[in-house]
Design a protein around this nucleic acid. Structure first.
Lengths: 253, 253
DNA sequence: GAATCGTGTTCCATATATCGGAACAACGGA
DNA sequence: TCCGTTGTTCCGATATATGGAACACGATTC
C-alpha cells in the first residue's frame, strides 16, 4: 500500500499548521516535518495558491479559509448532524452544560457537533476532533453496541488520569455494564474533573452515534446521574425518531 | 510558477467531492476531473488514509471529517470571528434576519461567519463560501475603502440578475456612493429577491471586513433602509472597538 | 550606518515517484 | 448464470519532485 508521497506531505503540512499554536514560517515548518526548506516552500506555495493555506501579515503560513468551506460541507453531508442539532441545543439549554454529538468514522470517534452550556467546561474537545475510545463513555457504548465500528489501540491503553481504565479486563467490565444499562458514564477517566453521561442513538438496532453531556464531576453529581441518564436516553430516542422519519411533537421541557 | 501537480490534483479532488451533490465513485470522479481511473483511485486512496476523504456505505467517496477539524481550526485563528460573534448574534436577534461577517482573502470575498435570523432567507451563502465582488454590497465597500484587497474579474462582469451592475461604469458610481455614505446596499443585484445592507469594519483606517444584514427585499424596505444602515454601522463600530481592545458596555437593545 | 543573522525564494541536475493503459477482480442487475 | 459496470492492482517509460546550494531580503545588533 504505497502512496502519493507529495500528497501525503501536503496533508502533513495542513495538520502541522493546524496543530501549531501560531502561524509558522517556512523554516519552522520544514523542521517540524523534517523537510528541506525548498520542499516545504514548494508545498506551501502550492497549497496557498488553492487557498488551503494562507499567509498572515507577517508572511507566515496558517490554514486557509478554503478549508472552512470544505469542512462545513463535510459536516452538512452528515444527516445526523442536522437532525440532532435541535435536540442538542434543547438539552444544553435545560441542563446548562455542554452537550455533544459523537460518531464513529474509520475506527475512530469524532465529535460531530456540540451545543455549549452556560457552565465552565467550554473548551473540552472541539468539533471535528477525535476522542479516545477506551477512555470515554461513547467509546464504551460503541464497544458494547457496535464493536466493529471502533478500533482499540493494539498496544497498551494510554492512561490519561488515575481513573482511566487501562486494563482490557476493567474496560470489558465497564462495557458490559454499559450494555446492560443502555447508557455509559465516565468519571474523570479521560480529563480530570470532567464527568460525562452518554446514551447511544440506536436506529433499527444499528448504532449511529451518541449524545453526551459533559460537566464538572461535582456538578454532575448534583444534577443526579440517574436522572441525567434518563434525559440523555430520551434525547437519543428523539434523534432516532427524526432519523427514521417519524415526526414528533418536539416539546417536553 | 510551476507546481506540485499531484498535490494540485488532490486539491481538485477535494473540491470536486465538495461540489458534488452526492458522494462520487472512482469513475465518476475521474470523468469530472479528466483523470484516468487509476489516477483517481490513487488520489482517493491517499486522501482517504488521512481522513480528508471517506467512503460511505455504498463505497462511494465524500469529504471526510478530518476536514471539519482543519476548517474550524482555520476559523478559530481568525480573531475577527471570535470578536464579532456576539455582535452578529445580537443583531440577528433584534432584526430577526440573517447577519453575516464577510472578509477578504487573496483577492476574494469570503463569508467568515453568520448568525441566522428567524426569517426565511436561511440558506443564502454559507460560511466559508466565496461571494462575488462586483455584485455584492461588501464588494462595493472593499472597492471603496480597500481596493487592493479585492480583485475584479479581468473579463466581463457576470450578470446574475437584471439588476446586477454589469458595467464597470455603473459599478464605479455605486462604489462612489458607498464611499460617501459609509455603507453599501444591494437590491437584488446578486440573488433575486435578496437585499442587503452592509457596513465596513474600519480599524485605524484599515478595512478588516464588513457586517451585513440580508433579508427579502420587501422586508428590508419595511424595516427601513436608513435605520438598518445606522444599525449596521453601529454594529461595525462595536466590533472595531473590540478589535482595538477598547472595552465597552455591550448592551443597547 | 555597516555588518550579521535569520528569513524566504529561486535554480538545476539527478533520481525517483508518478502516470496511465491494460488486465484483473468484485459486484449487482437482468 | 451471464453480462455490464465499477473498483483495484500491476508495471515500465518518463515526466516530476527532490534538496543542496546560492541568492535576496529585512530585521536586529553593534
Amino acid at each position: 500500500m504505497e502512496a502519493l508521497t507529495s500528497v501525503e506531505k501536503a496533508v502533513d503540512v495542513l495538520f502541522a499548521l493546524h496543530g501549531a499554536p501560531a502561524s509558522l514560517g517556512v523554516t519552522a515548518l520544514g523542521q517540524e516535518l523534517g523537510l528541506p526548506k525548498s520542499s516545504a516552500h514548494r508545498l506551501l506555495a502550492t497549497l496557498t495558491r488553492r487557498g488551503l493555506v494562507e499567509r498572515d501579515a507577517s508572511g507566515r503560513y496558517q490554514p486557509g479559509i478554503a478549508l472552512v468551506a470544505l469542512g462545513l460541507g463535510a459536516l452538512e453531508r452528515e444527516p445526523l448532524v442536522a437532525l440532532a442539532r435541535p435536540t442538542l441545543e434543547q438539552e444544553a439549554d435545560v441542563l446548562g452544560e455542554t452537550v455533544f454529538l459523537v460518531g464513529a468514522r474509520a475506527g475512530r470517534l469524532y465529535v460531530l457537533d456540540k451545543a455549549e452550556g452556560t457552565g465552565f467546561l467550554r473548551a473540552a474537545p472541539r468539533v471535528g476532533e477525535a476522542v479516545p475510545v477506551h477512555a470515554t463513555a461513547v467509546g464504551k457504548l460503541f464497544l458494547a453496541f457496535a464493536p466493529a465500528r471502533v478500533a482499540l489501540p493494539s498496544g497498551a491503553l494510554q492512561r490519561f488520569t488515575p481513573r482511566t481504565l487501562a486494563s482490557r479486563r476493567a474496560l470489558e467490565r465497564a462495557v458490559e455494564t454499559a450494555r446492560a444499562q443502555g447508557y455509559a458514564e465516565n468519571r474523570d477517566e479521560w480529563i480530570p474533573g470532567m464527568s460525562v453521561v452518554a446514551a447511544p442513538i440506536l436506529s433499527r438496532g444499528e448504532m449511529r452515534g451518541a449524545v453526551v453531556v459533559a460537566a464538572p464531576s461535582a456538578r454532575l453529581e448534583e444534577i443526579g446521574r440517574e436522572q441525567t441518564a434518563r434525559r440523555m436516553r430520551a434525547a437519543a430516542a428523539r434523534i432516532d425518531a427524526r432519523l427514521e422519519g417519524r415526526a414528533q411533537q418536539e416539546d417536553e421541557r
